[in-house]
Amino acid sequence: MSLPPQFKPIQHHLRTAQEHETRDPVVAYYCRLYAMQAGMKLDSKSPECRKFLVKLMDQLESMKKEMSDNESITQEVVGNAHIENYAIKMFLYADNEDRSGRFHKNMIKSFYTASLLMDVLSVFGELSEENIQHRKYARWKATYIHNCLKSGETPE
C-alpha cells in the first residue's frame, strides 16, 4: 500500500519495521506502533490516511496475536528494554567504527537506525535526556558522514 504524502515523517520508521520483519519482529512491531501513533497525530481524518492507518492497525493486531507468547510484546516494560538495548547496540557499533576511522554505508545506516529507534522509545513514555542527546548525535553523524562520503571528503 502506498504511503500518503502526509505520512512522509514516518516513512523511515515503517521501512525499518519492514527490514526487521524476520530479523527482529519485536523491533518491527514497535516501529509500527510508533508509526501508528505518530500517523494518528499527523492525519487521521483524510480518507487515504484513515485507510492506511486501519491497515497498519490490522497488521499490529495480527503481529501481537502471533507473538502472544513473547514478553517483549505482552509487557511493554520488557519491550522498552528490548528496543533500548537494540538501539544502543546499533549506536555503539557505529560509534566504534567512527572512532576507528572506518567510514562506510553500514555504519551510517546504524547511526540512522539508532536515531529512529530512539524516536520509537517515545511510545513507552518521555525520552531521557541521554536518549535525546544520543538521538541528536546519531542523526547528525549519519548526515555528516553521508555527506562526506558523497563529496569524497574524509570525515574528521
Binding site: 506502533l33 501508528m36 501513533q37 494518528m40 487521521s44 481524518k45 484513515r50 492507518l53 486501519v54 492497525m57 499490529l60 493486531e61 501481537k64 511493554e76
Partner: peptide, 27 residues
C-alpha cells in the same frame, strides 16, 4: 452534509483510538 461527514470521521477516529488502547492493554 458537512457535519455528517465530520461525525463519521470522528467515529472512525475513535474506533482507531480504541483499537490502539486495546492493543496497548489500556482499556
Amino acid at each position: 452534509t458537512g457535519s455528517v461527514g465530520t461525525t463519521v470521521a470522528s467515529a472512525e477516529q475513535d474506533e482507531l483510538s480504541q483499537r490502539l488502547a486495546k492493543l496497548r492493554d489500556q482499556l
